[in-house]
Design a protein around this nucleic acid. Sequence first.
DNA 1: TTGTATGCGTTATCAC
DNA 2: GTGATAACGCATACAA
Lengths: 334, 334
Amino acid sequence: MTIKDIAKESGFAVGTVSRVMNNHPDVSEQTREKVMKVVNKYGFVLNVNAKRLKMQERKTIVIIVKGTSSILLNSLLERVLNKIGSSPYNASVIFVDEYDNEAAKAKTIYYEEKPIAFIFLGGSPDWYKDDFGVIAVPSVIISSQADNIESENLSSVSTDDVASSKAMAELLIKSGHTKIGVIGGDLKTSEMTRKRYKGFLQAIEEAGLDFDEGRGYITAKYSMEGGFNAAEKILRYNEGVTAIFTMADVVAMGAIRKLADMGLSVPRDISVTGYDGLITSEYSCPRLATVQQPLDDLVEKGFALLTSCIEKKGRAEHILVPCNITKGESIKTI
Amino acid sequence: MTIKDIAKESGFAVGTVSRVMNNHPDVSEQTREKVMKVVNKYGFVLNVNAKRLKMQERKTIVIIVKGTSSILLNSLLERVLNKIGSSPYNASVIFVDEYDNEAAKAKTIYYEEKPIAFIFLGGSPDWYKDDFGVIAVPSVIISSQADNIESENLSSVSTDDVASSKAMAELLIKSGHTKIGVIGGDLKTSEMTRKRYKGFLQAIEEAGLDFDEGRGYITAKYSMEGGFNAAEKILRYNEGVTAIFTMADVVAMGAIRKLADMGLSVPRDISVTGYDGLITSEYSCPRLATVQQPLDDLVEKGFALLTSCIEKKGRAEHILVPCNITKGESIKTI
DNA sequence: TTGTATGCGTTATCAC
DNA sequence: GTGATAACGCATACAA
């Protein structure tokens, strides 16, 4: 069933049918009706491949999500899809593996699909240095900073990891904690981890506290399992710690679970902080002290930036949005 | 940049370039190398639209996910994408809104994209009755049962909700609970909810217990918030309940949070059961008694069924896979 | 082994 | 307002 068949059956030419299908104004109401009757009769839909080939269509925004298992990224994705749904563009979602190079993947897609723009959800700006060069369409990284990449096309909207992390550490310090352990990501590979660590260290330093970078920092995967395994090490290597600063809510939850297994109650025996502000953090027992990622704001600003780059040829920008600290119930004042 | 350009620069004809690009055997090694050199020079990639138009390509499996916010569905999606990644097919992911008619959406996509198959993640078999008729490609619903739809193309792989639910209720009863409240979904719209309720009622009946269907069943959204709001009602309407049977882990978690706010500790003061076996249930405090959905098995069988339908023209089937009950720590023996 | 020519289904540019 | 026709970029049957 092609436009040709519709033309034949309705008695008009293909050009006319095409005009009807695309709602062109220069076709008589009578003709439109006749054609539509045949179209509806067969439930005919235009062949998108032919259409796209012909139109060199560029209406698709490709969303590249780093890993499917992150609750945070899925929340962002949900919002982004909503945004795109009520825009003239359409979305194509690609999931790349946790440890894959998403910029290289984007490059392939860039050539193959010729999207009008890219949205990256999560991801490591480090990749982009090498691979982003050829991508000549507006792109935005949401939730990771990319101000160290000098590309005319790549924007980023993120929270200020250093400042937020520092604020959370300060809350811990203000609550009387002086011996704090940290469970974070891999400092070698994750820029985000480095930033959050930096903020933490700034707070420690400004408060004049001690921190043993060798023993006080435990590297873990950003997962419940990661937090679970790391919690024990924190206690073993750091006698007298009264608080654990983690770099993700999931890590905090894993840690809290492990502590409970060790007979330690949060916050009675030890305090724990999270990061991200997942919905779960509001319902966990205890409610988590966490850095609230402003998801709506992030997506709102990111999408606005992207469309401005697409339509008005605006320049790429790097925006930082502020975070709120949620105190929760997982910090004890001592 | 088209194959024409590559042809011109490499000194061969478009046909030859095409054959090189598609790894046809009947092209000399020398020619292949020369062509590839030019291809690599520009990072040239074939235009997928032209290619698909020409080949009438049907290699795409469309995955329709019901809502982005379900952790369970995202876990399934992750596994399905992995499966497809190591198959000759490629995936296209579509998210439909929680309350949308996914079968109608599938119908549109069916006409537009002409996929070779559909995979539905979650969803309400009810829709399919009306809208599935026209979809003449193999499809499988994973995690929801569809044995009441008589379509030659629609398979389903799911757990036996009635049996699993019954087993969970029996565990509760065996632990000494006789007055149990239920927090479930909307019985009017959700077949899954009806099945889980049916299993629960069977256990109650076989044990000769009483259950007040009017006051004992509280309808809630499948979310933490839903469970949070419903928990209080359960207690208010049912004096002396010692256990709450919920139909999802997220609901259980919301309920547990509410109970904690009311000064009630699980399982000391009241027992709570979940359903789904989310990773979170293993790390929550307390660990949740839950029905473990065998995600790997579900996806494995679903994909096998689908490919058999695609390739060997096997018939659609409705498979039930068994669930395991995880006891967790949220049930008190009384 | 390689080159040439045709058509996939659509849109847009002409004519009429 | 409508009809004819030339592309869009590719794969392939056929010719060389």
